[in-house]
Write a protein that binds this DNA or RNA. Structure first.
Lengths: 332, 332
DNA sequence: ATGAAAGCGCTAACAT
DNA sequence: ATGTTAGCGCTTTCAT
């Protein structure tokens, strides 16, 4: 910047004014400064600027996802990016694979870079460690799952209601013996979906049977194996509820492997690309990652812009999309 | 940091030494400092530290993708993230939607944040604007497509060879009239795949027919429409080569819509989740986004670590994965 | 082993 | 409209 000032024959402050688009510089000098900037290929150092500014915003936010490559997560990512970029804000993205340590580590790195806000799909069992952070002024929004031991803005979907609706839908097609594939119940979402499943069964007057309920799954392969095992039960289910996009893929693989995809009903939680192209097409509980991401970004930026409304807990509805796999009637 | 020093009763420099894990601090003082850090919930300001350091690395890199939500791109993203995180480096990610202006804008923002390196899936038609950047010491790696008017490290796949192999494969199953669905040829990858298609046809002794070649596509919907149009040609193709993951989805949709998915062969460029679960399962030209991402990160970090080897142009092979759709024989 | 002081690139207050 | 100067939070000599 000093070089630019020297070349343009002006003072440091004037260059700063031009770079920041401030008023109070004559068009002629501004042009000279701009010419010097171009000639020297000068690039403003936002990090240094932030250090001294009265309002020390870095114009960056951090995004903690379960996995940037998971289609649900990456769609959410894109929605957040679009909202941020429209405001000139850059986003750090990171995956934590449901690992609480990685979550803390990532957030800690974000802090070191002085991000203005953080949007996080929480993995850990306890988020009270973020209390100081919040008090320190960092905006924080939890997405997909609420935090534990911390009050913060959240955007979640109606997991319990969605899972319950799925079971009731299967019930309406004659099913009473319904298997369940879910993630570890320490994950709030997974727990809510399992509870929705149980409530749905209760509404049908059915006791859940642990023999056809599998939790703690973490991958397509896990789910495929679990589904295969459930199907080998002495009293196998006539329908399956899979509680996450990848698990649905695993369930479909398992059914295909034994050629029973047309006799055993499936409802999957999460919609995904090609779900409608399978045969039978997949009936799913859909919740829109784009809408969730946008809502989270909205909440975050409201706080970044200085508003301090009471904590908000947005719960977005889910939608049952009937495509075929969930409408397979129970065989008699 | 001043507060920490005061609380621990030591000088600024000592706190800095502890924070940076440098030697030359007695265990006792180090412990006192650490205690003060914990008590004050102090977080090191990497931005400020970078400003003064002899080796002014920010430990961040920028990643410019076509779209963070595209499965191919997000898998690449994850591979880069894993490589970077293992080295304590954070990644800024951004989408540019094949828009040259957005590419420049993103890279410019990255520069302002003083990222150490940039990995980019290029969108623009001219990358000479990055020359100054490279000379200035920012490591730069191009992925999936080479830059234009600039020499830099690249990691690409053998697009031409892959497309050509696809056509030859279809030829071996009796096809001579093969339709093509591709993106705008200003995208290097799209152009190479089209050339591979043409070369493949030439090897079969066939002239390409513009009536069944569509380029300039940009979405699933585009591809679906284009495929439908091609199928309505007075001399419709017996096989389709789709040159990108989303276009393959569109092609499948179009074939399904007219119920011809079992008579018209399809080979898709890019593998994707569930390609093996469709009926018929999709034959694809696969190139591994994870391997591409890892290779790019490797190249980038080699330069970040100070090595200055000659520019490298890694070309990864593609693989034909036969699953059914590409082995449908031509009807007689 | 530790501290004092200079200075990284910039902005903000105060001059002029 | 423009320049001068202090100082943001830190690292790095150079002392001690």
């Amino acid at each position: 910047m000093l070089d630019v000032a020297a070349l343009a024959g002006v003072g440091l402050a004037t260059v700063s004014r031009v770079v920041n688009g401030k008023t109070g510089v004559s068009p002629a000098t501004a042009a000279r400064v701009q010419a010097a900037i171009d000639r020297l290929d000068y690039r403003h150092n936002v990090n240094a600027a932030t250090l001294r500014r009265a309002n020390p915003k870095t114009a960056t936010i951090g995004l903690v996802l379960e996995d940037v490559a998971n289609p649900f997560m990456s769609a959410l990512h894109r929605a957040v990016e679009d909202y941020a970029r429209a405001r000139g804000v850059l986003v750090f993205a990171g995956s934590c694979d449901e690992d609480a340590d990685r979550e803390r580590e990532l957030i800690s790195e974000f802090r070191s870079r002085r991000v203005d806000g953080i949007i996080v799909v929480p993995a850990g069992p306890d988020h009270s460690y973020l209390l100081a952070e919040v008090r320190h002024g960092t905006a924080l929004v939890f997405v997909d799952r609420p935090p534990r031991f911390l009050d913060a803005d959240t955007v979640t979907a109606d997991d319990l209601g969605g899972a319950r609706a799925a079971v009731e839908h299967l019930g309406r097609h004659g099913h009473r013996r319904i298997g369940f594939l879910g993630a570890d119940v320490s994950i709030t979402t997974a727990d809510a979906r399992l509870r929705g499943y149980t409530e749905g069964l209760a509404a049908l007057g059915v006791e859940p049977d642990p023999a056809i309920v599998r939790t703690g799954l973490a991958s397509i392969e896990d789910a495929e194996e679990a589904a295969a095992a459930i199907l080998r039960d002495h009293d196998p289910p006539t329908a399956l509820l899979s509680a996450q996009n990848y698990f649905t893929v695993g369930a479909v693989k398992a059914l295909r492997a034994v050629g029973r995809q047309r006799e055993i009903a499936v409802v999957g939680y999460d919609d995904f690309l090609l779900a409608d192209m399978l045969e039978p097409a997949l009936t799913v509980i859909a919740h829109d990652p784009v809408e969730i991401g946008r809502a989270a970004a909205e909440l975050l930026f409201r706080r970044l812009d200085g508003a301090s409304p009471p904590r908000e807990h947005v719960v977005l509805p889910t939608r049952l999309v009937e495509r075929g796999s969930g409408e397979i009637r129970v065989r008699r």
